[in-house]
Simulated scan of single mutants.
Amino acid sequence: MAITGITPEERSLIKSYLLLMFIHKVFERDCRIIQESGVFKTPQLYVEVVENGAKRAAILLREVKQEFASRTIKVFDIHRGHNGIEARYACRGYVGSMEILWPSFREEMMTRMRVYLGLSPSNTRPPQVAAAGQ
């Protein structure tokens, strides 16, 4: 009996796993930098916002890992290359790899990070209004 390849849903889970791993690391790094920089007058406020984003990412990462266990998925090699992220995985006995190029990986990271921080998912800013007398 032949093993069927990985499904689009399983590929999506692996992609989410990769994104959430990187997002969580970025949030943790940002918290450390904010705390240690000495630049912010009230670093605890900014750290709290970023920590909340990190907690949301950690919860989602835990859920993805639970799905991995129920679907027999394991990501066993992650490589950051010049062109993007490459991950090798095993899924129901099928071994494969996935590559996500940097531009799309970064774009999706930013979109998700904005949501986890409670911001609008779009990266468009409202038009600025000129002050009176200018």
Rank of each mutant, 00 (worst) to 15 (best):
L61T: 04
R56M: 11
L60K: 15
Q44W: 05
V50M: 01
E67G: 06
P43K: 04
E63D: 15
I59W: 10
I59P: 07
E67F: 05
V49G: 06
A54N: 06
L60M: 15
E63V: 09
V47L: 01
Y46M: 14
K65H: 01
K65M: 04
A69V: 04
V64G: 02
S37A: 05
V49D: 09
T42H: 00
P43D: 06
I34H: 00
L45H: 07
T42E: 00
F68L: 02
L61Y: 04
R56A: 14
I33Q: 11
T42Y: 00
A58V: 00
I33T: 15
R62Y: 12
S37D: 04
V64N: 06
S37V: 07
A58T: 08
L45N: 10
E67W: 01
Q44K: 09
L45S: 14
E36H: 07
I59H: 13
G38D: 03
K41G: 04
E36L: 12
L61E: 05
A57S: 08
E36G: 05
I34C: 03
I34K: 00
E51H: 09
I59Y: 11
A69K: 12
Q44T: 07
V47N: 00
N52Q: 13
E48K: 09
V50I: 15
K41N: 09
K65W: 03
Q66N: 14
G38W: 01
V64Y: 06
E36A: 13
K55F: 13
K65Y: 03
T42N: 03
R56H: 12
Q66E: 14
K55P: 11
R62M: 09
V50G: 02
L45Y: 03
V50F: 06
F68N: 02
K41R: 14
F40K: 03
K41D: 12
K65F: 01
L60V: 13
V64E: 00
L45V: 14
I59E: 15
E36Y: 06
P43L: 10
V39K: 12
V64W: 03
G53K: 02
L61R: 10
T42I: 08
Q44M: 10
K55H: 13
Q35S: 15
V47R: 01
E51V: 14
V64P: 10
A58D: 06
L61N: 07
A57R: 08
E48L: 12
F68H: 03
R62I: 06
V49N: 05
P43I: 08
A57T: 07
Q66T: 11
Y46I: 14
S37K: 01
V49Y: 02
E51K: 05
E63W: 10
Q66M: 11
V50C: 02
L60A: 15
T42V: 07
Q66V: 09
A58L: 06
F40I: 11
V49F: 05
I34R: 03
T42L: 07
K65A: 02
K55T: 13
G38H: 01
R62E: 14
I33L: 12
I59C: 09
L60R: 15
L45K: 07
K65L: 08
I34F: 04
K41P: 00
F68G: 01
E51C: 10
A57W: 02
V39L: 13
G38C: 04
Q66F: 10
Q44I: 10
Y46N: 10
Y46L: 15
L61G: 02
I33K: 13
E36N: 09
N52M: 11
V47Y: 01
L45M: 12
E51L: 15
K65S: 08
A54E: 09
G53P: 05
S37F: 11
L60N: 15
S37G: 08
E63R: 14
